[in-house]
Write a protein that binds this DNA or RNA. Sequence first.
DNA 1: TCCGCACCCTGTGTATACAATGAACAGAAT
DNA 2: ATTCTGTTCATTGTATACACAGGGTGCGGA
Lengths: 217, 217
Amino acid sequence: MRASDRAYATLLDQIQSGALAPGSVLGEVEQAARLGVSRTPLREALGRLAADGLVVQQSPRVTVVSDVDVDDIRSLFELRRALEETAARLAAVRGDSPAFAALAEDFGRSSLRGDDGREAYYALIARFDAQLDASVGNDYLTSALRTVRTHLVRVRRLARDIPERLAASVAEHRLIAMAIAERDADLAAHATHVHLHNALATILASVDASQPRKAPL
Amino acid sequence: MRASDRAYATLLDQIQSGALAPGSVLGEVEQAARLGVSRTPLREALGRLAADGLVVQQSPRVTVVSDVDVDDIRSLFELRRALEETAARLAAVRGDSPAFAALAEDFGRSSLRGDDGREAYYALIARFDAQLDASVGNDYLTSALRTVRTHLVRVRRLARDIPERLAASVAEHRLIAMAIAERDADLAAHATHVHLHNALATILASVDASQPRKAPL
DNA sequence: TCCGCACCCTGTGTATACAATGAACAGAAT
DNA sequence: ATTCTGTTCATTGTATACACAGGGTGCGGA
């Protein structure tokens, strides 16, 4: 594995997990020393993170981990809606119907008890996303979705997981998978719309609850 | 200006203009020498081009200018539809209404006679796109659109410009601008849909006409 | 003549050295 | 005392040198 890949993977993980908080300054020599690589591959890693939008060049001299506020979340979900509704429609038209029927089954079966439940949930979502990408067969769309999902990891961390919401989310995904399996493009798109609306509402409520200072602006 | 920026700008221009044809192998030492920079900034430029999707690592050893075939064009327009319909809707809701009314006026006035006409047309489109981005105020969406537009430059080069199509395209844009100005989100989105459908049809017809070999697959 | 192995060569990945630029601090002058 | 300017230091931008890997070619043996 290349040093630049390791540096990118490590930084990505630490930004997504919050170990590198928004606003953290990423000096080249400092990070290179910390990650045990030289400046050259580290610069490449920073460049890729900047392309992803996870770090920004605050001034021409200092790169920082990008911030994520409520407006960012709204913006991200606007893009996400556009992409996922389109993906759902396309998958319904040309997707692998049996695969989505099987996914719908899995969503129906999944019991989300305990802490393992959350892991199983995210694993199932990941499988669903992968099947969606494969069924759509559009690299441009997949690439755009990849960026959205990269940012989404951090957004999810901001919002506390609510067990009831998790269960509802599974049901929503089950409906989407069923709609795609039955080649009902409108239903797939509208169910995706509903799902993203609910997900955003939950996230915003959770964020507002934990950061009420910004509300009375 | 940084050497890496110059290298990126030069390579971008040469790829978009076709001076570097799809499939061209971009060796680091070779390109570095050609552009008068050292390998380090050139690598950064190649990295950014790879992130844009304009070059791909064909093998771990050789990066080439990415190819663009008919399926790519279709895929690109699927993404473009998703993004621009969303942008049109959002601009209709929260956009600068007078600005779009003024743009609609300009589209109405624009006479596309002669070779200057095409330049004026593209300049007007660029102004429209800029106003759209500003009105939507969504960096994620704008960033995704930027990628699409980057690829679109190459696609346009593949298709011959047809004068009648240019005139129709102006009229379509005028309608979109009017719809946004009048805050008619549905009309803005549907007019965008129509416009992109027509644009894609024209491009595909032009490409099929010049490359009829791939048709009887 | 064909197949296989080894060596060389080309090109990338990484490290480090050097140059340039921007910022911060201190000192002096108004 | 405050502001402006100069100098210095830190940090990035660029160049180059070195290491390594992969492929191609040539030679030898079957």
